[in-house]
Write a protein that binds this DNA or RNA. Structure first.
Lengths: 126, 126
DNA sequence: AAAAAATACGCAAATCATTTGCGAGTACTT
DNA sequence: AAGTACTCGCAAATGATTTGCGTATTTTTT
């Protein structure tokens, strides 16, 4: 099943990927159609095996769901466009605080920080 | 100029609006085209008068930029789809902390909390 | 193991928010 | 008033994602 190929790519990549990136990767191993990638991804998201996050570029990014990890929160560099995970924020703690103080039951959350990473900041000064 | 009509709608609405919502509103006063709304909105965003945020629904939401306000961070109810501003998080402080601890220069950020608001939580129990 | 039922997949067309090219209208400059 | 610049409407384009449908592959049933 092609699902396994898609799952494998996700498992072997530390950061999140777009459907197209996954498609390109899997295509090198098997013949596969982009819509199959999307369909499979949607299934995995439904089963809560994969997390989908839409970023400001309007593209969906996928990665393996990882219960106890804040790795899904990124700082995205405007220059090199790399996404760096941040663990500065304890999101679970924040979620509980919100629940306590506002009564709002958070089921999912998205954080997206845009800026310029240290590397690119350095380069721009040269 | 139609720009003024769009600006007015934004000024008179406490929460963020989609281009279509703005279009519907302005249409009641003047004849206007959707693409004019988008064009104008993009201008205002470029001039940093308006803030644009793409949510998980892949739709862009616009509101007046407000330097010293965390009001742009919302909790969005999965049930009634209302967006409630949150001031629980001091985002400016967080931004400085990230800069200090990681060297990443944050230029903008997005937070999106999804869940069920107190009102809808109550209703679901009935 | 073959038939029946269910699921996976490829392909092409559809969707939907947003953008863009172009031509006409309006405002501003000299 | 002529010339230049900006504003806007309209129709078509864009691009990520979805969907209908027919075929292939897998799983279940007998």
């Amino acid at each position: 099943m092609k699902k396994d190929f898609i799952f494998d790519v996700l498992k072997n990549t530390p950061n999140s990927l777009t459907a197209e990136e996954i498609y390109n990767d899997v295509s090198q191993k098997v013949k596969i159609n982009l819509s199959t990638v999307y369909r499979t991804l949607n299934n995995l998201v439904e089963k809560e095996i994969v997390t989908k996050v839409v970023r400001q570029d309007k593209i969906a990014y996928y990665e393996l769901a990882d219960e106890n990890s804040n790795n899904k929160y990124y700082m995205i560099c405007d220059v090199c466009n790399n996404a760096f995970p941040t663990d500065i924020l304890d999101v679970n703690k924040l979620t509980r605080k919100i629940k306590r103080e506002t009564g709002f039951n958070i089921t999912s959350q998205t954080l997206e920080f845009h800026g310029i990473c240290p590397e690119c900041t350095k380069k721009s000064k040269i």
